[in-house]
Protein backbone atom coordinates (compact mmCIF):
# COMPACT_ATOMS: atom_id res chain seq x y z
CA UNK A 1 0.00 0.00 0.00
CA UNK A 2 1.38 3.21 -1.30
CA UNK A 3 2.64 5.04 1.76
CA UNK A 4 4.05 2.07 3.59
CA UNK A 5 7.54 2.08 2.02
CA UNK A 6 8.02 5.62 3.23
CA UNK A 7 7.21 4.44 6.74
CA UNK A 8 9.68 1.69 6.48
CA UNK A 9 12.50 4.25 6.26
CA UNK A 10 11.94 5.23 9.87
CA UNK A 11 12.77 1.63 10.50
CA UNK A 12 11.72 -0.83 13.13
CA UNK A 13 12.68 -0.24 16.77
CA UNK A 14 13.08 3.50 16.26
CA UNK A 15 9.42 4.44 16.79
CA UNK A 16 7.89 5.93 19.90
CA UNK A 17 7.59 3.55 22.84
CA UNK A 18 4.83 3.44 25.47
CA UNK A 19 5.67 2.62 29.06
CA UNK A 20 3.28 1.83 31.87
CA UNK A 21 4.68 2.29 35.35
CA UNK A 22 2.58 0.76 38.17
CA UNK A 23 -0.72 1.81 36.64
CA UNK A 24 -3.86 1.26 38.72
CA UNK A 25 -7.43 1.87 37.68
CA UNK A 26 -10.72 0.92 39.24
CA UNK A 27 -14.37 1.53 38.41
CA UNK A 28 -16.08 2.20 41.70
CA UNK A 29 -14.89 -0.60 43.98
CA UNK A 30 -13.83 -2.91 41.17
CA UNK A 31 -10.08 -2.85 40.53
CA UNK A 32 -9.68 -3.16 36.75
CA UNK A 33 -5.94 -2.62 36.42
CA UNK A 34 -3.51 -3.56 39.19
CA UNK A 35 0.08 -2.37 39.20
CA UNK A 36 0.54 -2.69 35.47
CA UNK A 37 4.19 -2.42 34.46
CA UNK A 38 4.74 -2.81 30.74
CA UNK A 39 6.81 -1.43 27.92
CA UNK A 40 5.49 -1.43 24.38
CA UNK A 41 8.71 -0.81 22.48
CA UNK A 42 8.86 1.59 19.54
CA UNK A 43 8.21 0.08 16.12
CA UNK A 44 6.97 -3.16 17.64
CA UNK A 45 3.50 -4.65 17.83
CA UNK A 46 2.42 -5.61 21.33
CA UNK A 47 -0.59 -7.91 21.41
CA UNK A 48 -2.69 -8.11 24.56
CA UNK A 49 -4.83 -11.17 25.10
CA UNK A 50 -6.93 -12.34 27.99
CA UNK A 51 -10.46 -13.27 28.99
CA UNK A 52 -13.20 -10.68 28.59
CA UNK A 53 -13.41 -8.28 31.51
CA UNK A 54 -9.74 -8.78 32.29
CA UNK A 55 -8.92 -5.06 31.86
CA UNK A 56 -7.17 -5.18 28.50
CA UNK A 57 -9.48 -2.62 26.86
CA UNK A 58 -9.12 -0.34 29.87
CA UNK A 59 -5.36 -0.49 29.57
CA UNK A 60 -5.68 0.55 25.93
CA UNK A 61 -8.09 3.36 26.77
CA UNK A 62 -5.69 4.67 29.41
CA UNK A 63 -3.05 4.96 26.71
CA UNK A 64 -4.90 7.82 25.00
CA UNK A 65 -6.49 9.04 28.23
CA UNK A 66 -10.07 8.03 27.42
CA UNK A 67 -9.69 6.65 30.94
CA UNK A 68 -7.54 8.21 33.63
CA UNK A 69 -5.47 5.91 35.81
CA UNK A 70 -5.82 6.47 39.56
CA UNK A 71 -2.16 6.06 40.14
CA UNK A 72 0.99 5.25 38.23
CA UNK A 73 2.52 6.88 35.20
CA UNK A 74 2.19 6.34 31.46
CA UNK A 75 4.96 7.62 29.22
CA UNK A 76 4.65 8.24 25.51
CA UNK A 77 8.26 8.40 24.38
CA UNK A 78 9.77 10.71 26.96
CA UNK A 79 6.52 12.54 27.78
CA UNK A 80 4.55 11.62 30.86
CA UNK A 81 0.98 11.80 29.59
CA UNK A 82 -0.50 11.16 33.03
CA UNK A 83 1.21 14.25 34.47
CA UNK A 84 -1.07 16.96 35.81
CA UNK A 85 -1.50 19.66 33.18
CA UNK A 86 -0.44 17.44 30.27
CA UNK A 87 -2.08 18.58 27.02
CA UNK A 88 -4.53 15.76 26.48
CA UNK A 89 -5.69 16.88 23.04
CA UNK A 90 -2.12 17.20 21.76
CA UNK A 91 -1.24 13.77 23.16
CA UNK A 92 -4.23 12.18 21.42
CA UNK A 93 -3.08 13.46 18.02
CA UNK A 94 0.02 11.31 18.50
CA UNK A 95 -1.94 8.17 19.40
CA UNK A 96 -4.42 6.70 16.92
CA UNK A 97 -7.26 4.54 18.16
CA UNK A 98 -9.42 1.96 16.38
CA UNK A 99 -12.56 0.72 18.15
CA UNK A 100 -14.40 -2.57 18.09
CA UNK A 101 -17.56 -0.92 16.78
CA UNK A 102 -15.75 1.44 14.36
CA UNK A 103 -17.53 4.58 15.62
CA UNK A 104 -17.42 6.27 12.25
CA UNK A 105 -19.13 9.67 12.32
CA UNK A 106 -22.50 8.58 11.02
CA UNK A 107 -23.51 11.99 9.67
CA UNK A 108 -20.38 12.46 7.56
CA UNK A 109 -19.15 10.95 4.28
CA UNK A 110 -16.20 8.57 4.28
CA UNK A 111 -13.95 11.37 3.04
CA UNK A 112 -15.13 13.77 5.75
CA UNK A 113 -14.67 11.10 8.40
CA UNK A 114 -11.01 10.87 7.50
CA UNK A 115 -10.38 14.57 6.80
CA UNK A 116 -12.36 16.19 9.65
CA UNK A 117 -9.61 16.10 12.28
CA UNK A 118 -7.02 17.21 9.74
CA UNK A 119 -9.06 20.31 9.08
CA UNK A 120 -10.14 21.05 12.63
CA UNK A 121 -7.13 19.89 14.64
CA UNK A 122 -4.29 20.25 12.15
CA UNK A 123 -6.03 23.30 10.62
CA UNK A 124 -5.37 22.15 7.07
CA UNK A 125 -7.19 23.66 4.12
CA UNK A 126 -10.06 21.46 2.98
CA UNK A 127 -8.38 20.63 -0.33
CA UNK A 128 -5.12 19.59 1.27
CA UNK A 129 -6.92 17.61 4.00
CA UNK A 130 -8.96 15.77 1.41
CA UNK A 131 -5.85 14.91 -0.60
CA UNK A 132 -4.31 13.35 2.50
CA UNK A 133 -7.58 11.56 3.29
CA UNK A 134 -7.79 10.15 -0.25
CA UNK A 135 -4.27 8.84 0.03
CA UNK A 136 -5.02 7.20 3.40
CA UNK A 137 -8.20 5.63 2.00
CA UNK A 138 -6.28 4.31 -1.00
CA UNK A 139 -3.73 2.85 1.42
CA UNK A 140 -6.48 0.77 3.06
CA UNK A 141 -7.81 -0.20 -0.40
CA UNK A 142 -10.93 1.97 -0.21
CA UNK A 143 -10.22 4.35 -3.11
CA UNK A 144 -13.46 5.34 -4.83
CA UNK A 145 -15.70 5.11 -1.76
CA UNK A 146 -14.99 8.67 -0.59
CA UNK A 147 -18.52 9.97 -1.12
CA UNK A 148 -20.30 7.08 0.56
CA UNK A 149 -21.91 7.21 3.96
CA UNK A 150 -20.55 4.86 6.62
CA UNK A 151 -23.91 3.07 6.77
CA UNK A 152 -23.53 2.11 3.08
CA UNK A 153 -20.31 0.17 3.76
CA UNK A 154 -19.69 -3.34 4.99
CA UNK A 155 -18.27 -3.77 8.49
CA UNK A 156 -14.84 -4.54 7.11
CA UNK A 157 -14.88 -1.44 4.96
CA UNK A 158 -16.07 0.66 7.87
CA UNK A 159 -13.24 -0.58 10.06
CA UNK A 160 -10.70 0.21 7.37
CA UNK A 161 -12.14 3.74 7.12
CA UNK A 162 -11.68 3.99 10.89
CA UNK A 163 -8.06 2.92 10.51
CA UNK A 164 -7.56 5.50 7.74
CA UNK A 165 -9.14 8.12 9.99
CA UNK A 166 -6.66 7.35 12.76
CA UNK A 167 -3.69 7.16 10.37
CA UNK A 168 -4.56 10.51 8.79
CA UNK A 169 -3.25 12.24 11.90
CA UNK A 170 0.16 10.58 11.36
CA UNK A 171 0.18 9.06 14.85
CA UNK A 172 3.30 7.63 16.43
CA UNK A 173 1.35 4.86 18.17
CA UNK A 174 -1.73 2.94 17.04
CA UNK A 175 -4.16 1.30 19.45
CA UNK A 176 -6.53 -1.43 18.25
CA UNK A 177 -9.34 -2.40 20.62
CA UNK A 178 -10.68 -5.75 19.39
CA UNK A 179 -10.79 -4.26 15.92
CA UNK A 180 -12.08 -7.42 14.24
CA UNK A 181 -14.41 -8.78 16.95
CA UNK A 182 -17.53 -7.20 15.48
CA UNK A 183 -16.82 -8.34 11.92
CA UNK A 184 -18.23 -11.24 9.95
CA UNK A 185 -15.51 -13.89 9.55
CA UNK A 186 -15.05 -13.31 5.82
CA UNK A 187 -14.36 -9.60 6.45
CA UNK A 188 -11.76 -10.11 9.18
CA UNK A 189 -8.96 -10.90 6.77
CA UNK A 190 -8.92 -7.53 5.01
CA UNK A 191 -8.69 -5.63 8.27
CA UNK A 192 -5.97 -7.89 9.66
CA UNK A 193 -4.12 -7.42 6.38
CA UNK A 194 -4.08 -3.68 6.83
CA UNK A 195 -2.88 -4.07 10.42
CA UNK A 196 -0.19 -6.47 9.35
CA UNK A 197 1.07 -3.98 6.74
CA UNK A 198 1.19 -1.26 9.39
CA UNK A 199 3.20 -3.47 11.70
CA UNK A 200 5.61 -4.35 8.94
CA UNK A 201 6.04 -0.66 8.20
CA UNK A 202 7.32 -0.17 11.75
CA UNK A 203 4.37 1.45 13.50
CA UNK A 204 4.31 1.11 17.28
CA UNK A 205 1.08 -0.78 17.91
CA UNK A 206 -0.79 -2.05 20.93
CA UNK A 207 -3.40 -4.55 19.80
CA UNK A 208 -6.07 -6.04 22.02
CA UNK A 209 -7.24 -9.07 20.10
CA UNK A 210 -8.73 -12.54 20.09
CA UNK A 211 -6.96 -13.38 16.82
CA UNK A 212 -4.24 -15.67 18.17
CA UNK A 213 -2.86 -16.38 14.72
CA UNK A 214 -2.37 -12.68 14.10
CA UNK A 215 -0.66 -12.32 17.47
CA UNK A 216 1.66 -15.21 16.76
CA UNK A 217 2.60 -13.98 13.28
CA UNK A 218 2.78 -10.21 13.75
CA UNK A 219 3.46 -9.42 17.41
CA UNK A 220 6.90 -8.62 18.74
CA UNK A 221 5.62 -9.47 22.20
CA UNK A 222 2.40 -10.90 23.60
CA UNK A 223 0.90 -9.98 26.98
CA UNK A 224 -1.62 -12.04 28.98
CA UNK A 225 -3.82 -10.03 31.32
CA UNK A 226 -6.23 -11.62 33.75
CA UNK A 227 -8.20 -9.87 36.50
CA UNK A 228 -6.28 -6.65 35.94
CA UNK A 229 -2.79 -8.15 36.27
CA UNK A 230 -0.17 -9.01 33.72
CA UNK A 231 0.43 -12.71 34.29
CA UNK A 232 2.71 -13.44 31.38
CA UNK A 233 4.69 -11.55 28.77
CA UNK A 234 7.01 -12.79 26.08
CA UNK A 235 7.84 -13.23 22.40
CA UNK A 236 5.04 -15.03 20.53
CA UNK A 237 6.66 -18.43 20.05
CA UNK A 238 7.56 -18.68 23.73
CA UNK A 239 4.14 -17.29 24.75
CA UNK A 240 2.13 -19.71 22.68
CA UNK A 241 4.38 -22.77 22.66
CA UNK A 242 5.72 -22.72 26.22
CA UNK A 243 3.17 -20.88 28.39
CA UNK A 244 4.26 -20.92 32.03
CA UNK A 245 1.33 -19.54 33.99
CA UNK A 246 -1.43 -22.14 34.53
CA UNK A 247 -4.15 -19.54 33.86
CA UNK A 248 -2.58 -18.72 30.49
CA UNK A 249 -2.34 -22.42 29.67
CA UNK A 250 -5.99 -22.79 30.57
CA UNK A 251 -6.88 -19.73 28.48
CA UNK A 252 -4.95 -20.93 25.45
CA UNK A 253 -6.53 -24.37 25.66
CA UNK A 254 -9.92 -22.75 25.44
CA UNK A 255 -9.23 -20.34 22.55
CA UNK A 256 -6.94 -22.41 20.33
Amino acid sequence: MSEMPERRQTGAHHGTSVRFDRVNKSFGRVAVLRDIVLEAPGGVTTCIVGPSGSGKSTLLRCTNLLERPESGRILLGEIEITAAGANVDAIRTRVGMVFQHFHLFSHLSVLDNVSLALRKVRRMEREQAEDVARAKLAAVALGGLERRRPSDLSGGQQQRVAIARALAMEPEVMLFDEATSALDPELVKDVLGVMRDLATAGMTMIVVTHEMRFAREVAGQVVFIDQGRILELGPPDEFFDRPRHPRLRHFLEKVL
Partner: peptide, 26 residues
Protein backbone atom coordinates in the same frame (compact mmCIF):
# COMPACT_ATOMS: atom_id res chain seq x y z
CA UNK B 1 -23.53 7.52 21.09
CA UNK B 2 -20.63 7.77 23.49
CA UNK B 3 -18.46 6.04 20.93
CA UNK B 4 -18.92 8.91 18.47
CA UNK B 5 -17.63 11.31 21.07
CA UNK B 6 -14.73 9.06 22.02
CA UNK B 7 -13.78 8.61 18.38
CA UNK B 8 -13.74 12.37 17.90
CA UNK B 9 -11.74 13.03 21.06
CA UNK B 10 -9.30 10.26 20.05
CA UNK B 11 -8.35 12.19 16.93
CA UNK B 12 -7.40 15.13 19.15
CA UNK B 13 -10.53 17.19 18.70
CA UNK B 14 -11.31 19.40 21.69
CA UNK B 15 -14.49 19.19 23.74
CA UNK B 16 -15.84 22.24 21.89
CA UNK B 17 -14.91 20.94 18.43
CA UNK B 18 -16.57 17.64 19.26
CA UNK B 19 -19.68 19.48 20.39
CA UNK B 20 -19.77 21.56 17.23
CA UNK B 21 -18.86 18.99 14.58
CA UNK B 22 -20.19 15.74 16.04
CA UNK B 23 -22.73 16.13 18.85
CA UNK B 24 -24.75 19.07 17.54
CA UNK B 25 -25.10 17.84 13.93
CA UNK B 26 -26.00 14.33 15.05
Amino acid sequence: ERGQVEAARSTGMTRLQTMRHIIIPQ
